[in-house]
Write a protein that binds this DNA or RNA. Structure first.
Lengths: 189, 189
DNA sequence: GAATTTGCCTAAAAACTTTAGGCAAATGCA
DNA sequence: TGCATTTGCCTAAAGTTTTTAGGCAAATTC
């Protein structure tokens, strides 16, 4: 009996690829076993459960996204940085729809805190150093940017914009213009 | 054998309640049958499939949301209307998390066109009549508003904002201030 | 009251999840 | 090198969900 060499890591990476190919909600322990040509039960030495697999894929995606974001932000500031970060999210979602969906998985609070989610918030905050916002407003702005990035990407990928006229690339760049303008002239309460 | 009086409509409404209680992804034909104390197969006279059930719950949610939005917008304009619409989404998501999740279900294009999704876009556009935007910019703004509303509500409900300081109500109202300011001074390309 | 339709049933197959226990390959150690 | 232990994948089996097919009795129609 030849051993395939399964590890949690290989399984999670394969699960992420599977997610991109067939959709995150189609990722199943059975499908993964099939992909490795191995019996289903064998995966349970490496994964606690189906939920465990999904959580690990989510954490992988959050990590990859944070790495890309860190890369993109290096040496940039102001609108340049804003655009770069925004494009990281949008491009990642297009290249890896299954992983992006995974990154949206609701994590329990402890897992969330240990995840790269924290890095994401920090990087968004870093962008705001290029603008002139006082502390409480920075937090509001971090949340607003997160909402726009995530909301836009989700709606665009879900086909929410597909039936109307101006193409979405145009809206995307106008949205970034608008956000930049907003951050430069953040309204008082 | 007493008849329970199942109909597609009752099943869908019960499915929506179930979604709010246990989460949309836990909604299953089996669970629904259990709730009516009826055998699973009996539901298949009223529902084509599990997917069919989910789609119908999504359509119900979109409809309810559109009805609430129409109500809220009646007699309002400008920032007043903007705030009202935004709060409809946020409140609905809080009151009916399962239904709100259902509303995010990806529908096939024909179903989407027949859904209340169209009404949502129209109402968002109606708000923009209170601001001074030319045609292509209106579409960009509709998309931006949709992104912010959906993104914010999703992140807030997913706990994405829960570990930081200023409370989310404050961010929400500052976000609406910011959007209002942005629409009043929409930047040229 | 008989005929038809309708509603819920039993039965059964297929897929996924998860646990328990087994055997052989890999690894560690004298 | 040879033996003991650990590790990796296996078989077996039970539980859940989805879906189809066919049956019987209640409700509706005439």
């Amino acid at each position: 009996m030849v051993r395939v060499g399964l590890t949690t890591d290989r399984l999670v990476r394969a699960g992420a690829e599977l997610a991109d190919e067939v959709g995150f909600d189609q990722v199943t322990v059975s499908a993964l076993a099939r992909r490795f040509d191995v019996k289903v039960a064998s995966l349970y030495s490496h994964l606690k459960s189906s939920q465990d697999l999904k959580t690990r894929i989510a954490l992988l995606a959050l990590d990859e996204l944070a790495d890309r974001a860190a890369d993109a932000l290096a040496g940039r500031a102001g609108k340049d940085a804003l655009t770069a970060l925004a494009n990281v999210y949008r491009d990642y979602a297009r290249e890896h729809p299954g992983r992006y969906a995974a990154a949206q998985l609701r994590l329990d609070p402890e897992t969330a805190l240990a995840s790269a989610g924290v890095r994401h918030a920090q990087m968004t905050r870093a962008i705001l150093r290029g603008y002139d916002l006082t502390e409480p407003d920075q937090t509001h702005a971090v949340r607003l940017l997160g909402s726009v990035f995530h909301g836009y990407v989700t709606l665009e990928m879900g086909g929410g914009f597909s039936h109307s006229a101006p193409d979405t690339q145009e809206t995307w760049s106008r949205t970034l213009d608008a956000l930049d303008a907003l951050l430069r002239h953040w309204p008082a309460p």
